[in-house]
Amino acid sequence: MPVNTASLVIGLSYASLLFLVSVGLSVVFGLMRFVNLATGSLYLIGGYIGWSVARSTGNFFLALIAGALAALVVGVLIERGFLQRLHRKELLQVCLTLGVAYIVQDVTRWIWGGDPLRLRPPELLRGSMELFGSVVPIYRVALIGIGALLAVLVWYLLERTKWGAYVRAGVDDLEMVQCLGINARRVFAIVFSLGALLCGLGGALGTPVTGVAPGTDIQLQLMALIVVVLGGLGSVTGAIVASIVVALVDTIVRTFWPEASFFAVWALAALVLIVRPQGLLGRAA
């Protein structure tokens, strides 16, 4: 088996990115049954803005903030402008978010062109290091650390705070929460915005790894959907677990059958859904 430390690091760093992209989607999905097909676009925006800011200022940290904020702005626009009126209308949600995805793809292609752009990691994190006898890129290791940190943070926010309890209650039963006098709309808006923020951050963080190009949005969008259904809608723990599973399966299959990796992940998703329609850790729907 070609599973060594190096491929584990590559897989887990990819898992970090997947988690950032999918956790917002998952919670929003669980909360409002909202299908957001513009998630990948938010990643794209984060990536492109991050790239430009890093280019002009030379400051990677600033790039991360800019990327995250840009995605947040677009996310808030989507949420404010459209989403509230589309509650439980899956078809219209798909149509609308697909429209947003089209526009974002075209605008970014207009501004940044069609060639893949890659960002160099900040000086501190360039080069490689030795880990358990393998040589691995430092930036990948750092990504794992950041991803783990943010996962813990999100998990804590949702599982251990009062505000998180509202969200989880909303995932279980939205009307019930409204009966309790909690402003479900505001909770949803906050969750959606935070999700967008994480997406954009993921995009900026991922630029040194995945690069950013027209099509990155679709790729990430599909991966995020898989993570969400695998993990179970609305489950943070599920999103964490599924991100890791998906990224590792992808990485492992890639090492001995590169072409098949993408589909292996889909086959996994289809299989899980057939056996457990509610996902690995989701509750019965």
Partner: peptide, 16 residues
């Protein structure tokens, strides 16, 4: 929404 994603998944498998 689950129906939506499952039909999508199966299509991707066929694509693969």
């Amino acid at each position: 929404a689950y129906f939506l994603i499952l039909t999508l998944s199966l299509t991707q498998v066929l694509f693969g």
